[in-house]
C-alpha cells in the first residue's frame, strides 16, 4: 500500500459519503404541509396503501406517514410512545387483536354501514376495506376438474394423497381457528392430521401457487389473489397452466377474510382518521381504487367487483366472526403440536 493510493481512495470516497449523508438526513419525515398528518401502520401490500393514501392526499390535503410491514408487536413495543393513528391490516387478525386489547376506538356507524354485512368487526371495532378468499388452485394437466374435491374436508380422502400443496400462513391459521370454532377441536385435529399426511407443506402461499403452476403438485390451498396476480402478469387467466377453483357450496374452503382498518384510541387525530376510514370504505372513494388494483383483492361495498378477480358475492363463504381471531392460542397450540407451523 502506498500513502498516495489511500489518499486517492479517501479523496474519492469522502464527497460521496458527504453527499449521501446529506441525502439520508434530508429524507427525514414530517414534511410541513397544510392539514393534519395521519400516521398509518399497515401490513397491506405497500403499493396499494401508497395509492390509497396518495389519492386521499390529492383530494383532501391530508398527509400520511406510513409504517409498512407493521406488526402488533411493534405497536406493543412502542407502548404509549406510538405515533400510530390508524392500523390497516392485511389479514383480520392484527385488528382483531388490537380491538380485543382495547386499543381501538369504535368506528363510526355510518362507515360500517357502507360495507357488506359480515365483513367488519361485529363489535364495530374495525371496518373491512378489502377482502380475500381462500381458494384451491389446480393444474388441469395433473387433475381433471371433475376429480376435484367438493368440500375442503374431502382433501382428507386417500385419493388426494400426495397431490396437493398447502402453506401454514396466517390465513391457514385463521381457517384452523374457524374450524375449531365451528366443528370443535377433535374434528379439526383429525382434519389437520389428514392434511399433514396427504399434502405437501410448501411453507408460503406464493410457493403453493408457483409449484402448482409449474406442475410440481396437482392442487394447492392458497389465497385467491396470488393466482390472479400471476394471471395479470402473464397477460390473462388463459395464459396460465393452472386454474382457480371455489368449492361449489358454502364451505370452510371458501373462507373470506377481511383486511380491516381501525383508529387507535390513543390517536390525537381521531376525527380526520375517522374521515379517512369513511372514505376508504366508500364505494366512490377508496373502494374504486381497490377494485382496480393489480393486487386483485375484493372491494367490500355492495355492487362493486374487482376488475381482475370478479365479484365477492359469487363466492359461497361461510359466516365468520373475525374478532374471534384475536385469541389464536388454541389454533397455535394445535398447529404447533402437529408440527404444522411455518418456520
Amino acid at each position: 500500500m502506498t500513502p498516495s493510493l489511500s489518499r486517492r481512495v479517501l479523496a474519492g470516497a469522502l464527497p460521496v459519503l458527504l453527499a449521501a449523508t446529506l441525502a439520508a438526513c434530508g429524507t427525514a419525515s414530517g414534511d410541513a404541509g397544510e392539514g393534519p398528518t395521519l400516521t398509518v401502520y399497515t401490513d397491506q401490500h405497500a403499493e396499494l396503501i401508497s395509492k390509497l393514501t396518495q389519492a386521499y392526499t390529492d383530494k383532501t390535503g391530508v398527509r400520511f406517514d406510513i409504517q409498512n410491514d407493521a406488526t402488533v408487536g411493534q405497536l406493543e413495543a412502542e407502548g404509549s410512545a406510538t405515533k400510530a393513528d390508524l392500523f390497516l391490516s392485511e389479514d383480520p387478525t392484527p385488528v382483531a387483536q388490537l380491538g380485543a386489547a382495547g386499543l381501538l376506538a369504535p368506528v363510526d356507524k355510518a362507515t360500517l354501514d357502507q360495507v357488506r354485512p359480515g365483513l367488519s368487526s361485529p363489535a364495530g371495532r374495525w371496518v373491512a376495506y378489502a377482502a380475500r378468499a381462500r381458494v384451491l388452485v389446480y393444474n388441469p394437466d395433473l387433475i381433471a376438474a371433475d376429480e376435484l374435491p367438493k368440500r375442503l374436508a374431502d382433501l382428507a380422502e386417500p385419493q388426494y394423497k400426495g397431490r396437493f400443496a398447502w402453506a401454514p400462513s396466517g390465513a391457514f391459521v385463521a381457517t384452523t381457528q374457524y374450524l375449531i370454532a365451528t366443528e370443535g377441536e377433535p374434528a379439526t385435529r383429525t382434519f389437520l392430521d389428514a392434511v399433514k399426511t396427504n399434502g405437501v407443506n410448501e411453507l408460503k402461499n406464493g410457493n403453493v401457487r408457483d409449484t402448482v403452476e409449474a406442475g410440481t403438485h396437482a392442487m394447492g390451498l392458497t389465497n385467491h389473489y396470488y393466482w390472479w396476480i400471476l394471471a395479470t402478469e402473464k397477460g390473462g387467466p388463459d395464459q396460465l397452466a393452472s386454474r382457480i377453483y371455489h368449492f361449489p357450496e358454502v364451505d370452510p374452503g371458501n373462507l373470506v377474510l377481511s383486511s380491516g382498518a381501525g383508529v387507535l384510541k390513543s390517536s390525537p387525530n381521531s376525527a380526520p382518521a375517522q374521515e379517512f376510514l369513511a372514505w376508504l370504505s366508500s364505494a366512490d372513494g377508496g373502494q374504486q381504487i381497490i377494485a382496480k388494483d393489480p393486487s386483485a383483492q375484493y372491494p367490500v361495498t355492495p355492487g362493486l367487483a374487482s376488475a381482475i378477480a370478479g365479484d365477492l358475492s359469487d363466492i359461497k363463504a361461510p359466516p365468520f366472526d373475525m374478532d374471534k381471531l384475536a385469541d389464536s392460542a388454541q389454533a397455535e397450540n394445535l398447529l404447533k403440536t402437529l408440527g404444522m407451523s411455518s418456520g
Binding site: 408487536g73 401454514p168 389464536s328 397455535e332 411455518s342 418456520g343
Partner: peptide, 16 residues
C-alpha cells in the same frame, strides 16, 4: 430453523 420458528411465532400467531 430456530429463526424461522421465531418469525412464525411473531408473524403467524402474534406470539411474541
Amino acid at each position: 430453523t430456530l429463526t424461522t420458528k421465531i418469525m412464525a411465532e411473531m408473524l403467524d400467531y402474534g406470539d411474541y
